[in-house]
Simulated scan of single mutants.
Amino acid sequence: MQNDLFPTDAESERLRYEPFHESVEILDLYEHHRSGEMDVVMRPLGENPHATPKATMDELQSAKEAWESGERATYTISSKSDGEFVGVAEQWLEWDKRRASFGMWIREPFWGRGCSSERAGTMSYVAFEWLDLDLVSVGHDPENEQSRRAIEKYVDAYCGQHDAVLRNWLPSNDFGDPTGVHVYSILQEQWRENVTTAEIATIRVGA
């Protein structure tokens, strides 16, 4: 079953976005987990790398089901220049609240290259222009300084705000502890007033 809610491809200045469940091969993704490179990526998320290809298959199946139900849009991020796998971007939809919550992870070789802000700009465009939502939100673990810096950069650019610190907000993770979260939000009006024409010109969203 298909749905027509989410764009099936998008591009920004350097990055391309495609449905996760359609654009990644199970064993290719599992190889990133098996190689050990995902340890540093997954730990700040409170998760362990996949122990088996079945875990990878289950993740892709979950992404497909959530996409088809309209609950979550998960995209593979790749480099436009060479097609290299960069990471994953997500939007969790709360339709009754007219909001989306962002999530993402990026492979370590792409840290510090501005990929988080570029992805946030594209996903904000999808949320506000394509889905006509009122608000997007994003959060990070209070101890994750890298995420804090990346999030504050684009939240400040769109004149969003830091809303709260929610202690023990997320359930126990792979390491056994509930996790707190810093929460930020951007209103559609704030995004429209502060997104630049130059940024919009770099974004292409397909059907």
Rank of each mutant, 00 (worst) to 15 (best):
A164V: 08
G121R: 09
W130V: 13
H162S: 14
R119G: 06
S116N: 13
A120S: 15
A127S: 15
R149G: 09
P171H: 07
G139E: 08
A120G: 11
S147F: 00
D163Q: 13
L133H: 02
G139S: 10
N144V: 00
R148M: 01
E129P: 01
V136H: 07
G176D: 06
V155L: 07
S137P: 01
D177G: 00
V136I: 15
V165S: 12
H140M: 07
F128A: 07
R167H: 03
Y125P: 03
V136S: 05
Q161F: 03
H140P: 13
L170W: 10
A164W: 06
I151M: 04
R119S: 11
D174Y: 00
K153M: 07
Q161P: 00
Y158G: 07
R119M: 14
D134I: 02
F175E: 05
T122F: 04
A164H: 00
G160V: 00
E152Y: 00
L133P: 12
G121C: 04
N144Y: 00
D177V: 09
Y154H: 08
D132P: 09
F128N: 11
V155I: 14
Y154R: 02
N144L: 06
Y158V: 08
V155W: 01
T122G: 03
E118N: 09
E143K: 14
L131A: 02
W169E: 15
D174I: 01
R149N: 13
C115R: 12
L135E: 15
E152T: 13
S116Y: 13
G176I: 02
E118H: 11
E145V: 04
A127I: 07
R149I: 06
L131V: 00
E118P: 04
D141Y: 06
A120Y: 02
L131Y: 03
D156A: 14
S147E: 10
D132A: 14
V165D: 11
S137H: 04
W169P: 06
K153S: 12
V138E: 05
G176S: 09
S137M: 11
S147N: 08
Y154Q: 06
G160H: 00
M123V: 06
N144H: 07
A157M: 10
S117R: 10
T122L: 15
D141V: 05
S147K: 08
V165I: 13
V126M: 10
P142M: 05
M123Q: 08
S137D: 12
Y158D: 03
L170P: 04
H140R: 06
P171M: 02
G139Y: 01
A127V: 00
R167M: 04
W169R: 14
D163R: 12
A157P: 04
N144F: 06
S147D: 06
A127K: 10
Y158N: 11
